[in-house]
Amino acid sequence: MGSNMKGMDTDEARNTANQMGEHAGMVGGVCQKLLARVQATSWVGADKDKIADDIGNSFIPNANAACREIETQAGYLIAKADEQDAASA
């Protein structure tokens, strides 16, 4: 191992992972509010229907998939911090 090699700061890794999870949750909430706002407008017509459909059937599912991936990566980061702590014990 080279002299420039450093180990993981496991507390910082867990903190980062927790923030990742919190931010992913916020994105999901914002997406639902966006859809509700579009659906609640008094605007009517094909354009509104298309936008609401795109948000509900494309944008939100894609955003939710991205949020799940962020949460997966956060879990991976916590697992690596746990491994680092176990190896350092």
Rank of each mutant, 00 (worst) to 15 (best):
K6L: 15
M26G: 04
D49F: 06
Y76W: 15
D11T: 14
T41F: 00
L35N: 07
G45I: 00
K6W: 14
P61T: 13
I55G: 05
W43N: 03
A87S: 04
M1H: 00
A79F: 06
E83S: 01
C31Q: 11
V38L: 06
R14K: 10
Q73A: 06
G75A: 05
C67V: 14
N15M: 15
I51K: 00
E83R: 03
C67I: 07
G21K: 15
A87I: 11
N4H: 09
A13S: 09
Q39C: 05
G2T: 14
Q73E: 11
A24S: 09
A13N: 13
A36D: 11
V38D: 03
A46L: 13
M1I: 04
T72K: 12
P61V: 07
A86C: 03
K50D: 10
D54W: 05
K50A: 15
L35G: 01
E22G: 07
N15E: 01
A13C: 03
D53R: 12
I78A: 13
W43G: 04
N62V: 10
G29I: 00
G45A: 09
A24F: 03
D85V: 01
E71R: 07
M8V: 02
N57E: 11
G56C: 02
E22A: 15
N62E: 05
K80L: 14
A74E: 06
G25N: 02
G29F: 00
G75Q: 03
A24K: 01
A36M: 03
V30R: 14
H23K: 15
K50Y: 14
I60W: 10
N57Q: 06
D49M: 12
K6F: 09
N64H: 08
Y76G: 14
V27E: 13
Q32L: 12
I78V: 05
D47Q: 00
R14Q: 04
F59S: 10
N62A: 13
A81D: 00
V44T: 08
L34C: 06
D47S: 12
A79E: 12
A87F: 08
I78T: 15
A74F: 03
I51A: 11
E83D: 05
N18H: 11
M26N: 12
M8T: 02
P61K: 12
S58A: 09
N57G: 11
A81G: 04
A36V: 05
A74S: 04
A87K: 01
V38N: 11
D9K: 00
G28I: 04
K50I: 12
Q39E: 14
T10C: 02
G75K: 05
P61A: 15
V44N: 15
G28M: 08
A52E: 00
A63N: 02
G56K: 10
T72R: 15
L34M: 03
W43K: 07
I70T: 01
A63K: 06
A17K: 02
Q39M: 08
G2C: 08
N18R: 07
D49G: 08
C67S: 14
D49A: 07
D9F: 04
F59Y: 08
D85Q: 08
T10N: 05
N18F: 15
E83H: 03
A87Q: 14
M8P: 05
N4R: 03
K80R: 14
N18M: 01
N18Y: 08
M8C: 09
L35H: 07
H23W: 12
K48S: 09
M1D: 09
W43C: 00
A86F: 12
A52N: 05
N15Y: 11
E12R: 12
